[in-house]
Simulated assay, not measured.
Amino acid sequence: MSGTPMLVACPHCHALNRVARERLDQAPNCGHCHQPLFAGKPIALSTAHFDLHAARSELPLVVDFWAPWCGPCLAMAPQFEAAAKTLEPHVRLAKVDTDAEPALGARFGIRSIPTMLLFRDGREIARQSGAMNSAQIVAWVRANAPRA
């Protein structure tokens, strides 16, 4: 709904910001740390901040579960970053290193990597395993979160 503020979590300080939907494209800054709310690249999420971005922030969240030793994960990383440039500011893209954050991998039953999960309002609404190029990532997000 136009004019209705939405909550957007800052990728830097994780503060929640109220941003009018029509202002998302106007490069808003965080009211707390004054950094840009959107940088056109995925953010790294830890267990400590995951739920804030997945459930409290009102942006759809696409999370790439990956590991530094995974060849397909490393091949997909620049594609995921390119997708972030296309999808932001209407979708937040994030990465979770399953080696550094094993509790998140276990919580979501990640059995193979890379695996992408799409969250809206704190609920998983889609899942995709396997490396994809940026066009495939964008198409998958738009097919599963049509307002993105």
Rank of each mutant, 00 (worst) to 15 (best):
F108T: 08
F108Q: 10
F108I: 09
F108K: 11
F108D: 08
G109P: 07
G109Y: 07
G109S: 10
G109F: 07
G109W: 08
G109N: 12
I110D: 01
R111I: 11
R111S: 13
R111M: 13
R111K: 14
R111V: 12
S112R: 14
S112M: 13
S112W: 07
I113G: 01
I113M: 05
I113H: 01
I113R: 00
P114L: 03
P114V: 02
P114A: 07
P114R: 01
P114C: 03
T115M: 06
T115Q: 09
T115K: 05
M116G: 03
M116T: 09
M116C: 11
M116L: 13
L117G: 13
L117A: 12
L117K: 11
L117I: 11
L118P: 13
L118E: 14
L118N: 14
L118M: 14
L118D: 14
F119H: 03
F119Q: 02
R120C: 11
R120P: 08
D121H: 15
D121A: 15
D121V: 07
D121K: 15
D121G: 14
D121C: 10
G122Q: 09
G122C: 08
G122T: 09
G122E: 07
R123S: 13
R123N: 14
R123M: 12
R123W: 09
R123I: 05
E124C: 13
E124R: 14
E124G: 10
E124P: 09
E124L: 12
I125H: 08
A126I: 09
A126C: 11
A126H: 12
R127H: 00
R127T: 00
R127E: 02
R127Y: 01
R127L: 01
Q128I: 00
Q128S: 06
Q128K: 07
S129T: 12
S129F: 03
S129D: 08
S129N: 05
G130P: 12
G130T: 10
G130S: 10
G130H: 07
G130Y: 06
A131Y: 01
A131M: 02
M132F: 08
M132A: 14
M132E: 08
M132K: 15
M132D: 07
N133L: 03
N133E: 08
N133P: 02
S134T: 09
S134P: 09
S134Q: 13
A135N: 09
A135W: 03
A135I: 02
A135Q: 13
A135M: 05
Q136M: 13
Q136K: 13
I137W: 10
I137H: 11
I137R: 10
I137P: 11
I137K: 11
I137S: 11
V138H: 06
V138A: 06
V138L: 06
A139I: 00
A139R: 03
A139H: 02
A139K: 04
W140M: 07
W140S: 06
W140R: 06
W140C: 05
V141C: 04
V141Q: 04
V141P: 01
V141H: 02
R142Y: 03
R142K: 15
R142C: 06
R142F: 04
R142Q: 14
A143L: 11
A143W: 10
A143P: 13
A143C: 11
A143F: 08
A143I: 12
N144A: 04
N144S: 04
N144C: 04
N144W: 01
N144M: 02
N144V: 02
